[in-house]
Design a protein around this nucleic acid. Structure first.
Length: 711
DNA sequence: ATAGGGATAT
């Protein structure tokens, strides 16, 4: 028989009410430490006249703050008020300062009320008496209370008030003021505070510097961020996290990635917050290898990753083209929020596996989660890319009727795209006209793309005309129109578009590709990579490959070159496309059989697509090429991987790969402050990972430093 | 008493 559990609401009083007054303080202290607030208050209230030291109340309030217990805090305050007045009546200690006036208790009471969301009560404690002589700590507690409750303006004016009353600000006040300025995006005042800090004789602490970093980040003054970062005497995890997320927020993804690596190099370590900053970067630059490495570290950790990190991790896998891993993490999560669902659903949309996505959506609704607008953007875009037009249209309808979400411009964009891709251009145009919103450039852009798919030149010309007015400097529109002409064999049109671009000074974005090898990103620009191309290894490999590739039927297709040059030059240009350089680099610098994962910043051209396909065939490598729109998977040469034992993998038709535990040494380190030390050596991780339900998954297995451990 | 965090479309 199971022991009946006690309902959470039941309070058990274990203490006898006849506790001796002399032992009260120590009893109360241990009660506060173990968080037994009910017992503690009961005890205090039953001894209203016993004098208690300040420390006792301090400890009690501390316990109230960490439990966010408004109720107990108020009872305590009432008790203090009561005791104060009783004392006065009896004439004892009449001139003694009430305990409530002690700054230490005031500070704590203010904090308590503000963490409980009762800024009004906090303010009345603050105002209660002796404001003029309140020390810095009370002001700071109040200011932080304000910013905790989203009233940064009040927090900042409190700081100003404090200065007016000649209270000398210290590091705590500075960081509180900087935080408010950062939240308000108030650069001038923030600058002023910075100046005060510089003038202040005391040494600034780490927190003040980090608050300065935050201020300049929020204000968009990145030069100042970098300067403060360089000038500060020490940089801790928080400083580095700010730098990483700062770069990431500005879209400087490689710099963000690099900062994270440097952070590891300096031995700072990382924590969950660092990971929620760097994982989205991995997702965007397709750095699956590093992402997996980070995942391995997470699995090793004794501390459970929180929902934020898991959501980012899922998104990383989804964006790097491995939804299955994202799904496994999702399935293993003990708690999920709306973002978790949205992330996986979007993962299926990216992977063009909407049947599974729709099934999951049904599950989501069944389990009582109400989808939001993001959910529908993911679903609709997925349906549109997979050609599930009927399902998509139905969802668009259900969105309003069943879930009460009125379609936004983004939803209309998905709808238009869906109809356009299905060849229902007339209906798409009808939607554009009737949606009651001004169609954005992106909507017209998606229509133009649909015209490309169906070779509709007249409509394309009309749409392009509109687009050239809305976004005259956006090169992609010109390129698509030019492609449409080229596909139709209308070379005059191609010439015209090019002339237009030259006249308006519109430049095609430079093609750029990168490949991650041994946790390092190698970037190539179209037409670049001279050193690589001049190397002997490259030239030998190139001629061998070209011959083999011709053998499997590859013929260069120079129609993708839209310039009027000789055939030979065209061939040269196509060969210099950045994705090919990255692929060649990958071939040279990895062992045979290891998959190549290449990322391109634009759209992969048709010739590169078939080139990669042939390359995959002749080298028998898996090639995954990601561009801004698609994943190009070339898995003709999938190896079958047999799981022999944790450290030994066998790959059919290849030699044995030994992945010894010693080789799998991480370049990353945990922050020992915030996370428990990772398991000794590699005694635990394999079991951990098995417990997580990870089993090897064909080709992805080989080639990654942590592959043997993780998947 | 003080600093840092995730999802969407062309």
């Amino acid at each position: 028989m199971a022991i009946p559990s006690i309902p959470a609401s039941t309070t058990i009083t274990v203490l006898p009410t006849n506790t001796k007054p002399s032992s009260l303080p120590s009893t109360l202290k241990s009660l506060s430490l173990s968080g037994k607030l009910d017992e503690a208050l009961h005890l205090i209230e039953s001894h209203p006249l016993t004098p208690l030291p300040l420390q006792t109340y301090d400890a009690l309030l501390h316990a109230c703050i960490s439990r966010k217990s408004l109720h107990h805090g108020q009872r305590l305050q009432n008790h203090l008020l009561l005791r104060h007045s009783t004392k006065r009546k009896k004439g004892r200690g009449g001139n003694q300062q009430s305990l409530l006036e002690k700054p230490a208790l005031k500070t704590k009471l203010i904090t308590l009320y503000s963490v409980c969301g009762r800024i009004d009560l906090a303010r009345s404690v603050f105002d209660s008496a002796l404001v003029g002589t309140a020390p810095e700590s009370v002001w700071v507690a109040m200011a932080i209370g304000y910013s905790r409750n989203g009233c940064s303006k009040d927090a900042l004016s409190l700081y100003v008030d404090m200065l007016r009353r000649f209270v000398q600000p210290g590091n705590f006040a500075f960081s509180a003021a900087l935080k408010s300025c950062a939240e308000l995006g108030d650069f001038p005042v923030g600058r002023g505070v910075h100046a005060q800090i510089v003038k202040c004789k005391d040494e600034s602490d780490q927190v003040v510097y980090n608050a300065l970093l935050r201020l300049y980040l929020e204000c968009g003054c990145f030069e100042d961020v970098v300067r403060v970062f360089a000038e500060m005497p020490e940089r801790n995890i928080v400083s580095w996290n700010s730098l990483v997320s700062g770069f990431a927020g500005r879209g400087q993804l490689f710099e963000a990635f690099d900062a994270f690596r440097r952070m590891q190099g300096e031995g700072v370590g990382f924590n969950w917050v660092s990971l929620t900053a760097v994982l989205p970067v991995c997702a965007q630059i397709n750095a699956l290898c590093s992402g997996k490495e980070i995942h391995a570290q997470m699995a090793k950790s004794v501390i459970r990753p929180d929902m934020f990190v898991l959501n980012s991790l899922m998104d990383m896998y989804a964006k790097c083209g491995v939804v299955d891993y994202a799904r496994r993490i999702f399935d293993g999560m003990e708690r999920r929020d709306l973002t978790s669902w949205n992330t996986v659903l979007n993962g299926y949309a990216i992977a063009r596996r909407m049947e599974e996505g729709l099934k999951l959506f049904d599950k989501m609704v069944d389990s009582g989660f109400s989808p939001d607008m993001v959910t529908f953007i993911a679903l609709l875009s997925g349906c549109s890319h997979t050609g599930l037009t009927q399902e998509g249209l139905q969802l668009f309808h259900r969105m309003r009727t069943e879930f009460g979400i009125s379609p936004s411009a983004e939803h209309y964009a998905c709808l238009v795209d869906m109809l356009g891709r299905a060849g229902r251009l007339k209906e798409a145009l009808k939607v554009v006209k009737s949606m009651g919103k001004k169609p954005s450039g992106s909507i017209w852009g998606s229509l133009l793309n649909s015209c490309r798919l169906y070779g509709n030149v007249p409509l394309a010309e009309a749409i392009a005309k509109v687009l050239f007015e809305i976004e005259p400097k956006y090169p992609v529109n010109y390129v698509i129109l030019s492609n449409i002409y080229a596909n139709a064999g209308l070379w005059e049109g191609v010439k015209m578009v090019r002339a237009m671009m030259e006249k308006r000074g519109v430049k095609k974005e430079v093609g750029c590709s990168w490949i991650e090898i041994k946790n390092r990103l190698h970037t190539f620009v179209a037409g670049g990579g001279i050193e690589l191309r001049n190397s002997e290894k490259y030239q030998k490999l190139w001629s061998e490959l070209m011959e083999a590739m011709r053998g499997v039927g590859y013929e260069p297709d120079t129609r993708v070159v839209l310039h009027d040059v000789s055939e030979e030059i065209k061939k040269g240009w196509v060969c210099g496309h950045s994705e090919r350089l990255a692929a060649m680099f990958g071939l040279i610098h990895t062992r045979s059989g290891i998959p190549l994962r290449i990322t391109n910043n634009l759209r992969v051209c048709a010739d590169c697509h078939s080139w990669m396909k042939a390359l995959s065939q002749v080298t028998r490598r898996v090639i995954v090429l990601r561009d801004t729109k698609h994943f190009h998977h070339f898995e003709k040469a999938v190896f079958e991987v047999v799981w022999l034992n944790p450290v030994l993998l066998q790959v059919r038709s290849e030699s044995f790969y030994f992945v010894s535990p010693r080789r799998i040494v991480s370049s990353l380190r945990w922050n020992s402050d915030s996370l428990a030390k990772s398991s000794p050596a590699f005694a635990g991780p394999l079991t951990t990972l098995h417990n997580l339900g990870f089993a090897p998954l064909h080709s992805e297995l080989i080639g990654f430093r942590f592959s043997a451990l993780v998947f």
